[in-house]
Nucleic acid binder design. Structure first.
Length: 424
RNA sequence: GUGCCUGUAGCUCAACGGCAGAGCGCCUCACUGUGGAUGAGGAGGUUGAGGGUUCGAAACCGUCCAGGCACCCCA
């Protein structure tokens, strides 16, 4: 056989079956975002490299972005994340926007890394941000959006949790242990990894980054202290607000959640599936100086990003992906032969005008082939317009699901079919 | 960028170094006005590529390519 040209590494094809699942996810994201009063926005997929140099600057841009020169030689990047674009958009209209701003977006992103389970080079992300307020209630509201979404797609608190922590609380603890500001990023990494390594290698790793035995012991105590949140006024308030919002069961304090990104300042959180077999479903937190980096006045905000890959893996593992039929609420009109063809067109037009989705068989084929085709398309109702029907001004409507059929006069066909489709 | 694993029909996979196969799917027919079921036929392969070892390689060896997983990073 001929060699089929391959797709680009780390990209995915969305055949109708996969596309239906993606559509289903997006519909829920839109629904929940709107329900909480967030407005949809979108930015360009390509940006100048300068935009990212201003903020990200780190590995995300240098190592993991698709960067290329345009024909004039200017360096552009396929966006690896949305936040810099969001900051730029806000900065450009800072004086006319209504704050606090509640915005959401869903679109494609690209990162040049080795694909693996839960990670691809082209992926989609749902971004939700609430900007221009530093109230803890804003943090709670954004977390509630995630909870409502998880709930709406069928994930229950026993299966998935939002793990929350607070950077200020952790930093205060690390100060108490005598860690310097310079040490903190590596300590964050260490904490982030405690569940990913065996305890021996983890302790060796701790020694490697110059932690003394006493500090290590204290650190382990902190990471096992499930009640430490009580020492943080912000966390107490956050958890209280989430109780009022009705999502206590989805929320769990976890001192091991610190997040890798440096720009988080207060609340941080991740949604995790409880068996621990998957990467984080989403991640986010509170940040300062969002807009200052691209030339605006400083604004604080809180937000999160959810990729489309991990959530799908989780839903798949729990059998929660809906089985979609290919052509829901569609009607298939057969063509009996050349003589009868005009009548089939007439019927198809009539049904389409009354708002139905109609598939007309392309060309003349044996009736059994047309039926088989309709069946494989997932259509429920097939219409036959043959010599008998034409003579009597009727059509025959077969219900493929129920294995029965009726012959009705054309005038009543629309109403009859509408009834069948509605009762479907 | 580093490490490990895997490449055989459209898909899932068999085949001790000795004739390249099965299940599912696909096409045709039984079915000249009716889909799934059943039966009978049929198509489909340079075993990822190109070398080496061997009387003989899908299998063994090394090279390349592709994919998966883990690390890195992160959605």
């Amino acid at each position: 056989m001929k060699e089929v040209i391959k797709s680009v590494k780390g990209t995915r094809d969305f055949f109708p079956k996969e596309m239906a699942v993606r559509r289903w996810l997006i519909d829920h994201m839109r629904q929940v975002s709107t329900q909480f009063g967030f407005q949809e926005y979108e930015g360009p997929c390509i940006e100048t490299i300068d935009l990212y140099a201003a903020k990200s600057g780190d590995e995300l841009v240098k190592e993991q972005s698709f960067v290329f020169p345009d024909r004039s030689g200017e360096l552009l990047a396929l966006r690896p994340e949305l936040t810099p674009t969001l900051a730029r958009m806000i900065a450009s209209k800072q004086n006319e926007l209504v704050f606090p701003l509640r915005w959401w977006s869903f679109g494609p992103f690209w990162r040049y890394e080795r694909p693996q389970k839960g990670r691809s080079r082209e992926f989609y992300q749902w971004n939700v941000d609430l900007i221009g307020t530093d109230s803890i209630q804003a943090d709670a509201e954004v977390i509630a959006v995630i909870c409502e979404f998880l709930k709406s797609i069928g994930l229950i608190p026993e299966q998935v949790k939002i793990l929350v922590n607070n950077r200020r609380l952790m930093d205060a603890c690390l100060d108490d242990l005598g860690f310097t500001t310079d040490q903190k990023p590596s300590i964050h990494k260490l904490i982030d990894r405690i569940d990913k390594m065996s305890s021996n290698t983890w302790e060796q790793y701790a020694v490697d980054i110059n932690i003394n035995p006493q500090q290590l012991k204290d650190l382990k105590n902190i990471l096992n202290d499930d009640l430490m949140w009580e020492k943080s006024e912000e966390l107490v308030e956050l958890i209280e607000s989430l109780k009022w919002l009705g999502f206590s069961e989805y929320i769990q304090f976890d001192p091991k959640i610190v997040r890798g990104l440096d720009y988080y300042t207060g609340t941080v959180f991740e949604a995790k599936e409880m068996t621990g077999n998957f990467r984080a479903i989403c991640g986010g937190g509170r940040y300062d100086n969002l807009v200052a980096d691209v030339g605006g006045s400083p604004l604080t905000g809180v937000g999160f990003a959810m990729g489309d890959v991990v959530i799908q893996l989780v839903l798949e593992s729990l059998g929660l992906i809906p089985q979609t039929i290919n052509q829901p609420n569609s009607v298939f009109v057969t063509i009996f032969d050349g003589e009868c063809m005009p009548f089939s067109y007439q019927i198809a037009n009539l049904l389409r005008e009354s708002g139905m989705n109609v598939i007309l068989n392309p060309g003349i084929e044996k009736l059994n082939k047309q039926f088989k085709y309709a069946d494989r398309l997932g259509v429920n109702f097939v219409i036959v317009v043959g010599p008998d029907e034409i003579r009597e001004s009727t059509v025959t409507i077969r219900n493929l699901d129920k294995h029965n059929q009726f012959t009705v006069v054309i005038k009543e066909a629309v109403e009859f079919l509408s009834g069948l489709l509605a009762g479907d």
